[in-house]
Structures are given as structure tokens and as C-alpha cells.
Design a protein around this nucleic acid. Structure first.
Length: 493
DNA sequence: TTTTGAGTTGTTCGA
DNA sequence: GTCGAACAACTCAAA
């Protein structure tokens, strides 16, 4: 009798609640559940609580495929992925009751609404006698693990990353491997699962995702992307990462956004690559510092929960933003008349991704040339990027706008022409994404409105018909932005 | 406490 | 064509 009770107690499962950590390796919550020896029920909830920020359309597309990959990996190990939707707190509580779960494990998130939800759920469950454990899967260093000499959170990237790097070197554990079919124990009874198809994550009618074909969502795709990058592009990253036509970047961002790969795995792979090829060391340090920016952004979001809504530097709350729906639409569709801006915006629209330098140029154009609120740009990127990440997106936009931490100085206003000549001199990027200009010679490509009539004609370009004239004059817009920023200062004084 | 040096990614102008 | 200075002042980090 006693033995039977003990035995059935040991069979009570652990729910592993997957969120932005869609991988089996380097997954501390999953590893801990497996190590307990109890049956494990992997769960993913489509949280439809009004408190949550609804995911963007491109993210939904990615999630659709990433869930297939995760479910397959679990299936191959004799397990399953249980899908449920609704208010996540209620859903998890219901599942605990239904499965008589012994515990719920998850990996931590850092946006204020997520923290509130998770900590409330944690106390509710504990009060009900259910064990709860949360883990760090997303970050090399969590926000509450690092402070500056005065005990305050860092607000400048360079000292932050110096301190963080030292800490990581000192305390990095080996990421846990994925469980096997032997170690991942299935429960005696599986709870029911919704069908992902019912969630309608991918677009239909129209299906705008045809340009997304090159992506391979899922853990295996993430590992491949990392290997390809380290094998082929790592040496070149430092020197070539800014050249938008080059394939010099890692393209790991969507995999990171969904947690299909962990930064600890990346860190270790980079260390190993640096050992193999010391000549790539400096280039790879540059790459790691981009991982550092991701860390820094998450720390900022944690410290400043309003990062997505309010200016980090409060003086920018008074910035005289313009309302200009027509210009905003032209920007979104890649019809500004500035070829490099349009190339970036069309790459985004077509593939769900945009090169990092193009992001800065396009964002700067919206905020500074058009004086449109960075929040409008942030919302568009949130909807259209497959790598949309609340911390990175908000921190990045505020950085460009000048209102963020360690932000660009106000006088830094990107010139789409100058950037084009520097970082797309051969025009490969613009020609790819703005094909109606493809036949222009390099000298005319980044500023077609300055080209001679015969040059335009020979290339089949009729400005205002086949390609728009600039929606705003560069020098005028530049001066207007400087004046707006000066007004901010004057209002401050 | 005070002080000092530094701060992701630029552009323009004039010599 | 190249080069250095100006574009502001402020906040942060650390000695």
C-alpha cells in the first residue's frame, strides 16, 4: 500500500512549459525535468491574454514551422508537444490539475508583463503544493546578476560588455545536451492537444510568405546556420558585415528570437573556433559583441519595463513627432524614392529579415528624415521581422532615435546616398531589391534623381512612373531634424 | 567625493 | 580627392 503510493507519486509528471526556448539541447528547464527521473509533459501555450503583446505576422509564420521542428524532435524521442491556447495562467493551472503534475518548469523571460504573469503563477502553484522552478536559458548573464561599481545596472554598452564577458568566462557551465529517447520519459496518459493548424499561424489569402523560403526554422536549422557561419564567414565578419550585398552575417537572429539556439552554445562554439583559427579571433570578438548587444537590450528592458513605449531618455518625451500616414506607408512599402531605404524595406517585406546596416539606415530615415515616431517603426518591424524580439527591437529603435541608452548622438543622421556609396558601392543590394533600377550605372544608382536624362532613359527608368521621386529632400530633411532636436534642447533649458 | 575620460555603426564643410 | 574639425552637451563608469 505504502509502496504503491510512493510509486504513483513518483509517476506524477513534470510539465515543461516551452516559451521562447524552442530547443531540446541547452534547455535547462527540460534538462532538470529529465534529470528528476519523472515523466515529462512538454507544453506550449498560445497565450491569448490581452496582457500579452500579440505576436507579429512574420513571427507567427516562423513559429508555425518551428513548432513542427520541435514536435518532430520530441516525437523522435517517444514524446509529444502538447499545444493549448487561451490565458496562459489558466491553461497551465488546468493542465496541472488534469495531469496531477508534480511540478512545472520553465525558462525565464524578461518583459514586465511576462515576469508578472510568471511570478503570479509561481506563487499560485506553490500555494497549491506544486513545485515550480524557473531557469535561465536565454542570456549569458541575467539582468540581476550584473551591476557596475556603484551597484547600479549598466547604462553604457562598453563597460557593460567588459564586465559581462569577464563574468561569463569565469562561470560558464557546459550546456546540457538534448535528452534521448531513453532519458525522456513519457507519461502514462497524455493530455489532449490542440491542432496547430487551427491556430492559423501562416498567412493564407494572400500568402505573402513566398519570399521566406530560404529560412529553416527549428533547432537543427539554427545549428546549421551557426556552423555555416563559423566555417565560411567568421573570418570575414569583422571586415564585411557592413556590406549589405555580402553574405557575411550569421542570420542567427530569428533562431535566437525563438530560442532555437542558446547564447551559451554560440559562445562555446565561437571559443572553439577561435582556438582552431586564431586569425579569426578579432573578427569573432566583433560577432560576440553583437550577442552582447542582445544581452544589453534584455537588461535594459528588464530595468526599464516601458522600453517599448516610452523614451529611455525622458527628455525625448517632448520630441515634436509628425503625423504623416502617407509617408509612413511609402516607407513601409519601400517607395520613398531613396534606393537604399527602399531596398531595405523591401527585403524586410519580402523575406521577413533586413540586414543590420540597412535596419539602421531605414530606421534613421523614418525617425530623422520623416520625423515619424520611432514607435510606428518599431510596430512595423515587430509585425514584419521573423526575428522580432521585444528587447532588441525596442532598444534598437530607441538607439537610432537618440532616446535610448548609449544612443547615437543627435547629429548622426544617416545619408542613404553616402551609406550606399560606402557599403553598397557595387550596387548589389539595391539592384537585388529594387530591380526597376537594376540597369542604372553604379554612379546613378543611389541617387537616381541626380542622373542625366539620357542615363535614366538608357536604364529604362522614368522617375515618378517606374520609380518614385524622393518623398523628401535630403538636405531639407536633415536640417529639419537638427532643428527639431535643437527645439528639444531649448524646451529642456 | 570629485574628477576625468569615454561613449557601436555619421555627415558636412572648408582648407 | 583627402583630412580634420565641428556638430553639444551630457551621462556614465571608474579611479
Amino acid at each position: 500500500m505504502m509502496d504503491a503510493t510512493r510509486q504513483s507519486e513518483a509517476l506524477r509528471p513534470i510539465l515543461v512549459w516551452f516559451r521562447n526556448d524552442l530547443r531540446l539541447s541547452d534547455n535547462p528547464a527540460l534538462a532538470a525535468a529529465v534529470a528528476s527521473g519523472r515523466p515529462v509533459i512538454p507544453v506550449l501555450v498560445d497565450d491569448r491574454s490581452p496582457e500579452r503583446r500579440p505576436r507579429g505576422a512574420a513571427s507567427a509564420w516562423w513559429l508555425d514551422r518551428s513548432l513542427d521542428a520541435l514536435a518532430q524532435s520530441l516525437h523522435a524521442r517517444g514524446s509529444r508537444l502538447i499545444l493549448r491556447s487561451g490565458d496562459a495562467t489558466k491553461v497551465v493551472l488546468a493542465l496541472v490539475a488534469e495531469t496531477k503534475a508534480h511540478a512545472v518548469y520553465w525558462n525565464r523571460l524578461y518583459a514586465a508583463d511576462q515576469i508578472a504573469r510568471d511570478s503570479q503563477l509561481k506563487s499560485t502553484l506553490r500555494a497549491a503544493g506544486v513545485e515550480v522552478k524557473s531557469f535561465n536559458s536565454a542570456l549569458l548573464v541575467e539582468p540581476f546578476e550584473i551591476v557596475n561599481g556603484s551597484g547600479q545596472p549598466f547604462k553604457v554598452f562598453t563597460p557593460f560588455w567588459r564586465a559581462a564577458r569577464g563574468q561569463i568566462r569565469g562561470q560558464m557551465q557546459i550546456p546540457p545536451a538534448a535528452p534521448t529517447s531513453d532519458t525522456l520519459i513519457a507519461p502514462a496518459h497524455w493530455p489532449s492537444s490542440e491542432t496547430k493548424a487551427d491556430w492559423r499561424l501562416s498567412p493564407q489569402n494572400p500568402d505573402w510568405s513566398q519570399g521566406f523560403v530560404d529560412w529553416r526554422p527549428g533547432e537543427a536549422g539554427a545549428q546549421t546556420a551557426l556552423q555555416v557561419f563559423l566555417d565560411r564567414a567568421a573570418d570575414q565578419y569583422g571586415a564585411r558585415r557592413d556590406y549589405m550585398a555580402d553574405a557575411a552575417t550569421s542570420r542567427l537572429s530569428p533562431h535566437l528570437a525563438f530560442g532555437e539556439i542558446g547564447t551559451r552554445q554560440i559562445w562555446r562554439a565561437v571559443m572553439a573556433a577561435q582556438e582552431r583559427r586564431p586569425e579569426a579571433g578579432a573578427s569573432l570578438d566583433k560577432f560576440l559583441s553583437e550577442i552582447g548587444w542582445r544581452e544589453f537590450s534584455h537588461h535594459l528592458l528588464y530595468q526599464f519595463p516601458d522600453l517599448e513605449r516610452r523614451a529611455f531618455k525622458s527628455s525625448y518625451d517632448a520630441f515634436p513627432w509628425r503625423s504623416d500616414p502617407k509617408a509612413l506607408r511609402a516607407w513601409k512599402r519601400g517607395q520613398t524614392g531613396y534606393p537604399l531605404v527602399d531596398a531595405g524595406m523591401r527585403e524586410l517585406w519580402t523575406t521577413g529579415y533586413m540586414h543590420n546596416r540597412a535596419r539602421m539606415i531605414c530606421a534613421s530615415f523614418l525617425v530623422k528624415h520623416l520625423l515619424i515616431d520611432w514607435r510606428d517603426g518599431e510596430a512595423h518591424f515587430w509585425d514584419t521581422l521573423v526575428d522580432a524580439d521585444r528587447a532588441n527591437n525596442a532598444a534598437g529603435w530607441q538607439w537610432v532615435a537618440g532616446s535610448g541608452a548609449d544612443a547615437a548622438p543627435y547629429f548622426r543622421i544617416f545619408s542613404p546616398m553616402g551609406q550606399g556609396e560606402r557599403f553598397d558601392a557595387e550596387g548589389g543590394y539595391v539592384r537585388r531589391w529594387v530591380p526597376e533600377l537594376a540597369r542604372l550605372p553604379n554612379g546613378a544608382l543611389h541617387a537616381p534623381w541626380l542622373a542625366e536624362a539620357n542615363v535614366l532613359q538608357a536604364a529604362g527608368v522614368r522617375l515618378g512612373e517606374t520609380y518614385p521621386l524622393p518623398i523628401v529632400d535630403h538636405s531639407y530633411a536633415r536640417q529639419r531634424a537638427l532643428d527639431a532636436l535643437a527645439s528639444l534642447k531649448a524646451a529642456d533649458a
